[in-house]
Design a binder for these strands. Structure first.
Lengths: 207, 207
DNA sequence: CCGCGCATCAGCCGATCGGATGACCCCGGG
DNA sequence: CCCGGGGTCATCCGATCGGCTGATGCGCGG
C-alpha cells in the first residue's frame, strides 16, 4: 500500500488523478492540495509516502519551491513531479529541489502507477522524453547553465533590465552582469536578445 | 441532455473530465480523443452536441486546426476550448477557427457545466481572464505585426544590433529603430529581449 | 482628392548594456 | 590543505539602446 498526496492547481487534473488512482487497489490518496503552501502543510500533517507535484501552480509558491520545502521536512515523503513540460530548466530545477522523479502528464496510467510505487521506495523514474534530455545533457551536447544562470535567463526573457533582475533575485547589478557575461559565453551570443532566442530554441526556457 | 466529445492528449485530464462530467445527470460523454485527428473523426461519427477541446495536443494537428476541421463538418457540433493558457494569440486563433467558447482548466466545475450547456445552445462563454483580454483587444491594441516588422523581429532574434539589422535589410539604422519602437508597442514590451521572448511564445517566430 | 497605414529617414540625449579586470567567500574533493 | 567551481561584488568606459519629435513618399480606398 502506497499513500499519496496530490498537488495541482487545476480541479480537473486532481479529479483525474483521483479517478485513476482510485482504481488502483494498493494506492491510497490521503489528500489533495490546490497550492504549494497547502501541499507543504498537508505533507507535514498527513505524512504520505509520495507527493504528486505539478510545477505550475498559479498563485503562490511554485512546484519547485514546494518540492524544496517538502523534502526539507523531517522524515520527508518522496516527491514525484508530474507536469506538462520537459524543459531543461524545469527538469534540473525540480531535481535539484529534491524531486525523486519527473513524469509528464501525457504518460500512460500504468506507467504512472509504476512510477509511484518506484518513488515510494526512493527509486527515480523519468519519462522517456525527460530521460532523453537528461542523457543529451550528460553527453555535453548542449551548454550546461548553472541554476543561478537559469534564474537570470528567466528574468531576462521577461524583458527586465539588469537593475530589475538584480532586485528580483536579491543580488547586486554587478553580479547580474557577471552572470550575463557567462551566459553569453555558454550560449555563443553577445546580446540579451540573442540569449533569449537561443534559450528558447534549446528549450532551456519554457515556451 | 447534452452529449459531449472530449479531446485532450493527457490521460489524467480526460479521466478528470470523465469523473466530473459523470456526476452530472444531464451530460453524457459519447467518447474521448487523444489527438486532433481522432477528435475530428469521432466528431463526424458520433455527432455530439459539444466538443471539449484542448489546444495543446502534442503530436499531430493542434487544437486550433482540429477546431477548424470540426466546425467545417456538415451539421457541426459546438467546440468549447478548454485549455491552460489565456494568451492573446491562442484566444484569437481559437475563436477565428470557430470555437464557441474559451475556458481555462482552472475553472470551477459548476462553471464548466454551465458553459457546456450554454455552448450546446450556441452561446459563447469565456473565462473571466479570457474575457478581459478580449475586451482589452477590442479597445484598440491588436498585436498584428506587419511584414516588415516581422523581418526586423527575425533579425532581432539572431541577436543582431540595430546597425547590423539595418545592413541586413538594406535600410537605415533610423528605420530599424522606428520599427523596433512599434514592435515594442504592439507586443507590450520595452526591450529587445522581451520582444524576442513574446514573439517566440506567440509563435510569431520560428522556434 | 484626401486621409490613413506603411515604410522610410534624421537628430538628440539620457539610460543602459557589454567587456574587461580584479576581488572575496564558501564548499567539496583530491 | 590547497585547488577549483559557483556565487557574489566593484569600477571603468565606450558602444548601443530606447524614447522623442518630426518629416517624406507611396499606395489604397472612401
Amino acid at each position: 500500500m502506497t499513500t499519496i498526496l496530490l498537488c495541482d492547481d487545476h480541479v480537473v487534473v486532481r479529479a483525474g488523478l483521483l479517478a485513476l488512482l482510485g482504481s488502483e487497489p494498493d494506492i491510497e490518496v490521503l489528500g489533495e492540495a490546490g497550492s504549494g503552501e497547502e501541499a507543504v502543510a498537508l505533507a507535514a500533517k498527513l505524512g504520505p509516502d509520495v507527493v504528486l507535484m505539478d510545477l505550475q501552480l498559479g498563485a503562490g509558491i511554485d512546484g519547485v519551491e514546494a518540492t524544496r520545502r517538502i523534502t526539507a521536512l523531517p522524515n520527508p515523503p518522496h516527491v514525484l513531479v508530474l507536469t506538462t513540460y520537459d524543459t531543461d530548466a524545469d527538469i534540473t530545477r525540480a531535481i535539484n529541489a529534491g524531486a525523486t522523479g519527473y513524469l509528464l502528464k501525457a504518460e500512460r496510467p500504468e506507467d504512472l502507477f509504476a512510477a509511484i510505487h518506484s518513488a515510494a521506495q526512493g527509486h527515480t523514474t523519468l519519462s522517456p522524453p525527460v530521460a532523453n534530455r537528461v542523457m543529451a545533457q550528460m553527453r555535453g551536447t548542449r551548454p550546461t547553465l548553472t541554476e543561478r544562470e537559469l534564474d537570470i535567463l528567466g528574468q531576462l526573457a521577461r524583458g527586465l533590465g539588469n537593475r530589475e533582475i538584480a532586485r528580483a533575485l536579491f543580488i547586486s547589478e554587478a553580479t547580474v552582469k557577471t552572470h550575463l557575461g557567462r551566459i553569453y559565453d555558454k550560449l555563443g551570443v553577445d546580446t540579451r536578445a540573442g540569449a533569449v532566442s537561443v534559450a528558447k530554441e534549446q528549450r532551456l526556457l519554457p515556451s
